[in-house]
Design a protein around this nucleic acid. Structure first.
Length: 438
RNA sequence: GUGGCUGUAGCUCAGUUGGUUAGAGCAUCGGCUUGUGGUGCCGAGGGUCGCGGGGUCGAAUCCCGUCAGCCACCCCA
């Protein structure tokens, strides 16, 4: 026997049912929000990802040279493909574009808890709208999906941060953009490493100003609501130009939070400038859905990426989006018993006396199947006892019993498998009777 | 790429200081059972004890290596 490759899962019917349950929720809620479903190739030119993320990315991709000497890679993410799709038709697509996708993605990394080499992601994006209403729409879509799956304020929160605000603040303190990047990169790590290590890193890049700056950064990180944030920024001694820009930015914050209130998402959202989400391409509001207890793992994350479409060769197009990974989410739901157990069962199971009865029963079964019922029957002849046993285990609601006695009178016996109640009906009335039972 | 832990049946596990032919429960299949089910009774299949090597009269058990899984680091689009 062969094993599956490391980091790739196999979906037996039980797991497949759970996976599809997730997908159904994703799709249902996204459609409810007016997003349209799209899809893109799983295999793309390697260049597409190098363009976005640099040469280093290659070591984390499933890539190879195809028979036409093309360098190709399995998609590690969807955003570059999306940017290409939208970029190519930007002038004719009605804006804003609100699109979603559910698909498998691949990363050649060491598998570990919450991270595999093949995983599914829900991606939701809005392109062509730079206003905060788009950010609000995305955040509330994320909240709504998690809510529909049974998670509450107790289970998760959305940590909302803002790269624009960070850069303005650091600019106000007198740092250039490059320095600000370095500072934010330390900030990103600080959640995982010790305070001493963090301080050492600040020391390294800031020298004499390290202590003072680190304190301010730490303070900003701990702020948890908008008023506090406003007060803090007012009290800081920043240069005038930055201060004005920060004031304008705080207006955006106020607007965004206002929208989130109306969208029913506010109670899930927490101001938390401690997240900056990598450094690659986000430009404005960024957010992550976090479990409140336990693993400290992000369930989902996203933000605004206004420069990316142009960077990938498309037009200037403001954009924002997020992704939900299936691995940590499944884990989270499973621990809370929020996933369905077992598989889809047939609604009706058939019990056959023998070969003569089988020949008659399959005619009725076909009628019922064509009427939309799911009907199972044994493929080889078995004793009644055995058949009743498996009928009981099948999860079906009713059993149709085709024995010699019934057939000789042109009837079939319908047994309710939960109550044990039985009724004899004419075969000609079977479909209508069954309809009445569902 | 680095480190730690764990590998016995499909699953959960037992297996004595190394001692005959490696066990149990659950699951599966068959029979009792061509007329009434989940939880009855009887039975069967299923194992190169992760793999390779070493040492021993003798290894699931001890030693070395290796592979896989999990966990952590790195990375995280």
């Amino acid at each position: 026997m062969f094993n599956s490759l490391p980091g790739f899962r196999e979906f037996y019917p039980e797991e497949c049912a759970r996976r599809n349950y997730l997908f159904d929720a994703f799709r249902r809620v996204a459609l409810r929000f007016g997003f349209k479903e799209y899809d893109a190739p799983v295999l793309e030119p390697l260049e597409l990802y190098i363009e976005k993320s640099g040469e280093e990315i290659v070591s984390q991709l499933f890539n190879f040279t195809d028979r036409g000497d093309r360098e190709v890679a399995l998609r590690p993410e969807l955003t570059p493909s999306l940017a290409r799709l939208v970029g190519a038709k930007a002038s004719s697509l009605p804006m804003p574009v609100k699109w979603f996708n559910i698909g498998e993605h691949y990363r050649y990394e060491r598998p570990q808890k919450g991270r595999l080499r093949a995983f599914y992601q829900f991606n939701g994006d809005i392109l062509g709208e730079s206003g905060t209403a788009a950010d609000a729409e995305l955040i509330s879509l994320l909240v709504e999906i998690l809510r529909v799956l049974g998670l509450t304020e107790k289970d998760f929160r959305i940590r909302l941060s803002d790269r624009t605000l960070w850069f303005l603040f650091l600019e106000g303190l007198g740092f250039e953009e490059a320095k600000s990047f370095e500072i934010l990169s330390i900030l990103d790590k600080s959640e995982k490493i010790s305070a001493e290590k963090t301080n050492a890193l600040y020391q390294e890049i800031l020298g004499a100003k390290a202590k003072e700056t680190a304190l301010k950064i730490e303070k900003l990180k701990t702020i948890q609501d908008l008023e506090e944030l406003r007060k803090f920024l007012d009290s800081e001694d920043l240069n005038t130009a930055s201060k004005e820009k920060l004031d304008a930015r705080l207006e955006d914050w106020t607007t965004l939070i206002g929208y989130l209130g109306g969208l029913g998402a506010k109670s899930f959202v927490q101001v938390d400038l401690g997240i900056v989400r990598g450094l690659a391409y986000y430009t404005g509001f960024v957010f992550e859905a976090f479990e409140n207890e336990g693993q400290f793992r992000a369930l989902a994350g996203g933000g605004r990426y206004n420069d990316l479409v142009a960077k990938l060769g498309g037009p200037e197009l403001p954009a924002a989006g997020f992704a939900i990974g299936d691995v940590t989410l499944t884990d989270c739901l499973d621990r809370r018993n929020l996933l369905p157990q077992g598989t889809e069962n047939p609604e009706i199971i058939t019990i056959l006396g023998g070969e003569t009865e089988r020949l008659e029963a399959i005619k009725d079964i076909t009628i019922l199947r064509r009427a939309g019922f799911s009907v199972a029957y044994p493929l080889k002849n078995q004793g009644f006892g055995k058949q009743f046993k498996s009928a009981g285990k099948s999860g079906a609601k009713i059993a149709l019993i085709y024995g010699g006695d019934e057939l000789s009178e042109g009837k079939v016996k319908i047994r309710n498998l939960s109550t044990g109640e039985e009724n004899l009906v004419d075969r000609s009335d079977l479909e209508i009777t069954v309809r009445g039972l569902f």
